[in-house]
Each structure stands twice: as structure tokens, then as C-alpha cells.
């Protein structure tokens, strides 16, 4: 997670992941770890996108379903439970995603704002869009998405 020295100021490493066929990215600095074997306890009464609470080495981590937040269809049952643990507003939150993809180095200057015609539920959660070879990475604004 440490920035190697000499890297350009404009470079930004992104941890990328999939929801369906869409590629999303979060800044590597915000990512604590990727965890595939968390077991969470459902918490009745929580918002629909909250899957539950899990124990991460003694910390209670809220697990949220990003598909729900971004208005995707119900999560397929057979997906592996890949959780990206991020640090958001000084607490750990686990984001349930479909699949983890590569860590990508992005040039900040190439980040564009999200297209206008994007539904509000999604646009609200994005800080921008980055074109890469063969597709787009939607950059997740974690704090917005998790509030």
C-alpha cells in the first residue's frame, strides 16, 4: 500500500473489481485488505444494503452489498463472498463485490466525470470514470456510496 518513490504525482493506484460485467475502482489507499472468508451475522432492522456484521480480528465490520447500493439485480447465490475491507470515515467497512480484478495504475488527469445520463443512484456514488484499454473503470466515491 505504500507509494513507491519516484512515482508521478498524478498517478493513482486503483483496486478494481467487478459487479456483473462492469468494472469499478477504489483508491488503493482506502483499501485495507481483500477478504474471501468472512462470515457475517445478519442484523435485522438494518438498511436493505447492509448484509450484516463480521468479526475482522476483533473489530466489528459492517458488510454492505454494493450491488444493492448501485441498484444492480439481486446478487446471484453462487458468487464467492469477496469482501473488500475499506477504511471509510475512520471505521472499517466491508464491501461485498462480485469478483476482484487487478490493481491498476491510473493517470489522474485522464479521469473524467461520470456521464450525465447515469441514474442518480449510481452517479451519486461515483467520483469519476476512467477509460482504459477495452473498457471503463467507474471510480467509486466510497464515502458517498457508504452514507
Amino acid at each position: 500500500m505504500t507509494e513507491p518513490t519516484g512515482r508521478s504525482q498524478t498517478a493513482q493506484e486503483l483496486v478494481t473489481f467487478h459487479l456483473d460485467h462492469d468494472l469499478y475502482g477504489v483508491e488503493v489507499e482506502q483499501v485495507v485488505e481483500v477478504n474471501r472468508d468472512l462470515i457475517w451475522t445478519p442484523i435485522p432492522g438494518a438498511a436493505p444494503y447492509v448484509r450484516g456484521a463480521a468479526n475482522l480480528r476483533g473489530h466489528i465490520v459492517t458488510i454492505v452489498d454494493l450491488r444493492k447500493i448501485l441498484d444492480y439485480d439481486e446478487r446471484p447465490e453462487d458468487l464467492a463472498k469477496t469482501v473488500i475491507i475499506v477504511n471509510s470515515r475512520d471505521e472499517l467497512v466491508g464491501i461485498l463485490v462480485d469478483r476482484i480484478a487487478d490493481v491498476v495504475e491510473a493517470d489522474r488527469s485522464l479521469i473524467e466525470s461520470a456521464p450525465r445520463n447515469m441514474p442518480q443512484t449510481q452517479a451519486r456514488c461515483l467520483s469519476g470514470v476512467l477509460k482504459i484499454e477495452g473498457g471503463l473503470i467507474s471510480l467509486l466515491d466510497l464515502n458517498a456510496a457508504l452514507d
Binding site: 457475517w40 451475522t41 447492509v50 456484521a53 468479526n55 466489528i60 459492517t62
Partner: peptide
């Protein structure tokens, strides 16, 4: 242990704990 901000506001819970098997219980 305190619950995260998404769960803190639910009046039914005072917090959570980690059980012997490592699972969370409200």
C-alpha cells in the same frame, strides 16, 4: 464492541460482541 455507523442507529441494539466461535452477535 461498537457497531459501525450503518447499524448504530438501530434502537434494538446496544452494540455487538464477538462470540467464542468468532462470529458477531448483537
Amino acid at each position: 464492541k461498537p457497531l459501525g455507523r450503518h447499524l448504530k442507529e438501530i434502537p434494538s441494539y446496544a452494540g455487538a460482541t464477538i462470540m467464542g466461535d468468532g462470529r458477531v452477535a448483537p
